[in-house]
Design a protein around this nucleic acid. Sequence first.
RNA 1: GGCCCGUUCAUCUAGGGGUCUAGGAUGCGGGAUUCUCAGUCCCGUUACAGGGGUUCGAAUCCCCUACGGGCUGCCA
Length: 495
Amino acid sequence: MSNPVIRCRIAPSPSGFLHIGTAKTALYNWLFARSQGGTFILRLEDTDADRTEEQYVEAMCEGIKWLGIDWDEGPQFGDEPAKGAFGPYRQSERRQLYRQEAARLLAEGKAYKCFCSKEELDVQRDLAAREKRPPRYSGKCRNLTQEEITAKGDAPYAIRFRVPEGETVVDDIIQGAVRFNNKEYDDFIIVKPNGDAVFHLAVVVDDGLMKISHVIRGDDHLTNAGRHVMLFNALGYPLPQFAHTPLVHDEQGKKFSKRLHGANILDWRADGYLPETMINYIALLGWTSEEEGREFFSLDDLKRLFTLKRLTKSPARFDRKKLDWLNGQHIRMLTPEQLFYRVLPIMQAHGLQVADRSREWLVSIVAICQEKIPTLNHIIPFTDFFFRQVTAYDEKGRQKYFQKPESLLWLQTALSALESTDAWCHDALKEAYEQAAAGTDIKIGMLVNTTRLALTGKTVGPGLYELTELLGRDEALARMKHALTFVESSGEFTT
RNA sequence: GGCCCGUUCAUCUAGGGGUCUAGGAUGCGGGAUUCUCAGUCCCGUUACAGGGGUUCGAAUCCCCUACGGGCUGCCA
């Protein structure tokens, strides 16, 4: 199902990493385009040369790629070649287009030259603020005669848009019809004295020429949309549909500060979250499924089910707890093999000696953690004991299992259960423990937890029988004896 | 200051005049899983910002107030 009419875009300003808010905008545009068989376009808003650096372009690219968002048209970006028939896709390469369109507006009297200096305007703005008046442009150059303009010679000038009288309505898919009295808008500048377009002109020219059908973006642009509608009309472009989505707030309910850990989408990768999770979670931050109660969505589900009608009006707070839960859900959806490949680099980075082990065994130790870990990074505390000797026992665990009057009995009972087990596998181990507990007044939990502490040094981890099987008979028995010595010597760790 | 947008459980939300003594999910609390839990299952917990209208009836419509946010740049 392909729909040539639906064209959406994400137009990030490459002045940093991929911010969570930008990711949300990108995601909604992408999902909408994909759900409709439309086209998704990437455009770089790098008009402000001072603030653009190639390294930022790279960083942003990495974030978008990690999320798995792909585009049909866009500039050369990372290792993606430029593609699409409406280019160029970097604003810095479209200056000529903006100038042409500005010249048209000028010729049609829909814009005018303004010779006021920046200093002059700053003074006026300050004065207005001090007198508590709305900071409006005085309109000094609005009605200059041809003679007056000619008299200016080659004095530098900006180009201002001549805001028409009347009312402007932004017919927004999310917000409904939002009305603005044009008096609220200044004659805003569309071209700087250096000839560069200002954001408002650039977006409208780009969206118009690129035949964007739906502009989905943060509602910080809602007021700007009024300006844009006027500009679309003045330039004679058909109006796109607008959808202004609420912003994402941090866990304190404040704007997501760019400095905060988590503002960069790649922070979440570093913390062990899957891209599937982030997509799913961000989608939920402002969109709900028709299917009430459903919150787990794969990428394919989302691409199919996403609708603009189900977008939410109020801003959402980022909730780490729910993200954790969702990440666990997505981890559980992977096959053990897939999970292994996701987790392997993390294990290597933490110095676990995976090279000496068989892949089959490695997949197995990952598999027994799959049901329990909330993030990929949790694989480390859940498996590190397979690779390292136990050199310390968890403090709370020690008090609970190693420092009780019965501790030695528990350990010895567990040890003989292990020694008596011939078939070293989950079921046989389970049976051995059950038998050892039966007929005594030792609770099986004590045997299990004491063993866990002896074998892993921890109180939390994968299932005991699974872990014991994979640890191997010799190693397990050695660690048990070691623990026994430790407890006998009343807490002194000896080797 | 002006204009614009928003406000349902702790959090994300459903709901758009009667079916709402407000539903779901996460969190939290309790129980179960004769092994830990950060897993799984079950049970429980809590909300229509406030005030006025309109109406037989309002979470739902209107107005005001409060609070939060945005725009008001030769930033995007």
